[in-house]
Design a protein around this nucleic acid. Structure first.
Length: 294
DNA sequence: CAGCAGGTGCAAG
DNA sequence: CTTGCACCTGCT
């Protein structure tokens, strides 16, 4: 990978395994949106960034060398060797096909607080509504950080800000019955000085145990936080889609989430999180939800 | 109009 | 410890 720095953008070349659509639309993040010309604009770490592909080049707009090195290299997981990971998890023809479908997925290393709240909101919910809720929270209670491509942009509000919101205010952001979960979680998060470094020191199992102390965080959401915010790539979130695709490809019959979880641990080990993303994306691509009913 | 969507919490068995 | 059910809300 080669990096070229400019005044307000960074261009990289020679990067493999990076497709914008795969990465931003595989369900791991909720604040990235495609622009008309095909680039994607996102907000993280209180900053607005735009990513665009031009042939072999990936262009990171509205940023600089310092932020790129300090924030975005890690955020986009750019130092990770996805070729090696794919080799390791590619044990059979089924997973090979899934990897092929989502070959350009990179797992983003997202912020802890935002990830916790985003995935609490995601429970029993659909992506358009999740994105809408999060956007309403940011517009209502997040800091205004500038206008980009003609649109006002807001940061995700921190836990300290959110702990003082009322249930009514959060319900006003379309969070429904999750509103009290969010407030309780904010209060607990503030009361114990949880930091990303603290969680990173924990082994995956302990981390799950700690995370499920937060209201609205069960096993599935805790696994998402482990993979998407804490870099614990052995986590394997089991949702309905993963359950369907694993049953479809491997079990050939209905089973329990626990069995799926055990199967993934055994089969993919420390790289289960990557496998989960490829499988999830593949399941969505196959439209397995509808296929089953017919 | 039921059923469902990246599930979880809670009350019972 | 496992199972069944309710739950905001919008879409089919």
């Amino acid at each position: 990978m080669e990096k070229h720095y400019y005044k307000d953008k960074v261009v990289i070349t020679g990067i493999e395994h990076f497709d914008l659509k795969h990465t931003f639309e595989c369900g791991q993040c909720f604040r990235w949106n495609e622009e008309e010309e095909g680039s994607y604009t996102g907000i993280a770490f209180g900053k607005i960034i735009n990513v665009q592909r031009e042939g072999e080049k990936i262009i990171f707009n509205n940023t600089n060398k310092e932020d790129f090195e300090n924030i975005w290299v890690n955020y986009f997981d750019l130092t990770r060797d996805y070729g090696e990971i794919k080799e390791k998890i590619c044990n059979d023809a089924m997973i090979e096909k899934a990897i092929h479908f989502g070959s350009g997925i990179r797992i983003l290393n997202q912020e802890l607080w935002e990830t916790i709240i985003s995935f609490i909101i995601s429970s029993n919910n659909n992506i358009p509504r999740i994105k809408k809720s999060i956007e309403m929270i940011c517009e209502g209670y997040g800091e205004y950080i500038g206008t980009y491509m003609g649109k006002k942009r807001y940061a995700f509000p921190d836990a300290n800000k959110m702990k003082d919101l009322t249930v009514e205010q959060l319900k006003g952001c379309n969070t429904g019955y999750r509103a009290p979960y969010i407030i309780d979680t904010a209060k607990l998060f503030c009361s114990e000085l949880f930091t990303i470094d603290l969680f990173k020191e924990l082994d995956s199992e302990t981390s799950i145990k700690e995370l499920t102390r937060f209201s609205g965080v069960g096993p599935k959401v805790a696994h998402c936080i482990n993979v998407f915010a804490l870099g614990k790539r052995d986590a394997f979130p089991v949702d309905v889609w993963i359950k369907r695709i694993v049953e479809h490809l491997y079990f050939k019959e209905q089973t329990t989430p626990q069995k799926i979880q055990a199967f993934a641990n055994e089969k993919f080990g420390i790289n289960a999180g990557y496998a989960q993303q490829y499988l999830f994306y593949y399941a969505r691509e196959l439209n397995l939800g509808k296929e089953r009913k017919s």
